[in-house]
Amino acid sequence: MSDAPKEIVKRIETPIHLTFQFTPGVGASRFLRGIAEGRILGLRCTQCAKVYVSPRGSCPKCGAPTLDEAKVTDRGTITSFSIVRVPSEGIDIELPFVCASILLDGADNTFYHVIREVPVEDVRMGMRVEAVWVPREELRASLESIRHFKPTGEPDAPFDSYKEHL
């Protein structure tokens, strides 16, 4: 055996792959069923009466169940946003794009989605937007059934109308 120092082994690639079977639960199941039918369903907290979109079955603030269905439209207001100019692994949206926090009409919480069909420089806080759905036959029980949001052309919502949702 040679006494010459060997280069240390620095890296070994060890891929890990997992497929999860996600159980949405009772509350989210109702919401996802609605999405598969092309409509957005909100659920109302039995205690504070706030309406959650993409409900998990209980109110995160009160811990009470969200049982009653509430009417939520697929139109809403951009409460804030960022212009994404950096690529990420697994994301195949053309750069740059706007990722916005959206407050749907009739809902009390916001969620993130992509804004398209408008130059990124023209996107504003308060801008009114609506959902662009996949074709009817491609609808399924996933939020990916909504491709993106686009401006409605309505006047911007005043800051005071969404400042509690930052």
């Binding site: 946003f81 960022s82 994404v84 949206i93 926090s101 993130y112 806080m125 996933s142 939020l143 800051f159």
Partner: peptide, 29 residues
């Protein structure tokens, strides 16, 4: 840090994507 679950659209990647809108909101406010 990028969750892929059916209750969220896969549009936010990493901490920067998540926190940037909050920073914009702070600047405005």
């Amino acid at each position: 840090l990028s969750p892929r679950i059916p209750l969220q659209p896969t549009v936010v990647f990493g901490a920067g994507g998540y926190f940037a809108p909050l920073i914009r909101a702070y600047i405005r406010r």
